[in-house]
């Protein structure tokens, strides 16, 4: 099938150029650790607030950092396609018979793979400082799936956005507008029970929040798949819609230039 073949060929290109940038690799691996340490220290006493549900804060934070990393990593995915666009690479790709969806899919998969690696790093470090995987191996796999789905959705949205705005400054501005509010409007760093009512209501429509809940279930209790499904399914739906949006953005790009 052309779609998958093209995506596979392009994914190879993206992964290859990623590992050829040693600084990038190191930063991508260190960053999750920095988040974990900073937030872990800064918000340590959050766990002492009456009403906080989630055990020790590091236990609470581990899935949160996974989810946050996934969002932050994937949201920037559009920069790659922007570079391709500026250098003429995108136009060259678009004059080949390669599947448009495949081109997007490769970028989305690339983000998901990077996020998967980061998730492993976060979990390993968190385990070293006292967190534990309450869901066992099954939960760990589920956590990985959650992080990758979230990354796929936001990477696709980011790529679509890039194709619509086609300017670095605009892209970055929109990105900054969304990433932090999406993080705070979710149970990523703070227990849902401590949120004001309106935030809790808004969080119900936030894919980051779905990911946070699913990730927390996956790391806190065995056989979490069932309870996580109500979050997992909308998350998968979000990834699909974002993918469709990105593919549609290609046709807009084609009309506008």
């Amino acid at each position: 099938m052309n779609l998958l073949g093209d995506a596979y060929a392009m994914l190879g290109r993206h992964l290859r150029s990623s590992v050829r940038m040693p600084v990038w690799v190191v930063v991508e691996l260190i960053q999750p650790a920095i988040w974990l340490v900073l937030y872990g220290q800064l918000f340590r006493s959050v766990a002492l607030i009456p009403g906080f549900t989630g055990g020790s804060y590091i236990q609470f934070l581990m899935p949160g950092i996974v989810v946050m990393d996934s969002l932050f990593g994937a949201a920037w995915a559009g920069m790659g396609i922007l570079t391709d666009l500026d250098r003429g690479v995108l136009d060259r790709l678009l004059t080949t018979p390669a599947s448009r969806t495949g081109i997007i899919l490769a970028r989305v998969l690339h983000s998901a793979v990077v996020v998967a690696v980061q998730t492993v790093v976060v979990v390993v470090i968190a385990l070293m400082v006292g967190a534990r995987l309450g869901g066992g191996v099954e939960g760990a796999v589920l956590l990985l799936v959650v992080a990758m789905l979230e990354a796929a959705g936001f990477a696709a949205a980011s790529n679509g956005l890039t194709l619509l705005v086609r300017r670095e400054e605009t892209f970055i501005a929109v990105l900054n507008l969304f990433t932090l509010p999406l993080t705070f409007l979710s149970a990523t760093l703070m227990s849902q029970s401590l949120m004001p009512g309106w935030m809790r209501a808004a969080a119900r429509f936030n894919p980051v929040n779905w990911a946070a809940h699913a990730a927390r279930l996956a790391t806190s209790r065995p056989a979490a798949l069932g309870p996580a499904l109500p979050y997992l399914l909308p998350l998968a739906g979000f990834a699909l819609v974002a993918g469709a949006f990105a593919t549609w953005a290609f046709s807009v790009y084609r009309r506008a230039t």
């Binding site: 290109r13 290859r16 150029s17 050829r20 940038m21 500026d86 250098r87 003429g88 690479v89 136009d91 060259r92």
Partner: peptide, 10 residues
């Protein structure tokens, strides 16, 4: 194309 279109990292 007018712009080069090659992948610099490859």
């Amino acid at each position: 194309a007018q712009a080069t279109g090659t992948d610099k990292e490859a």
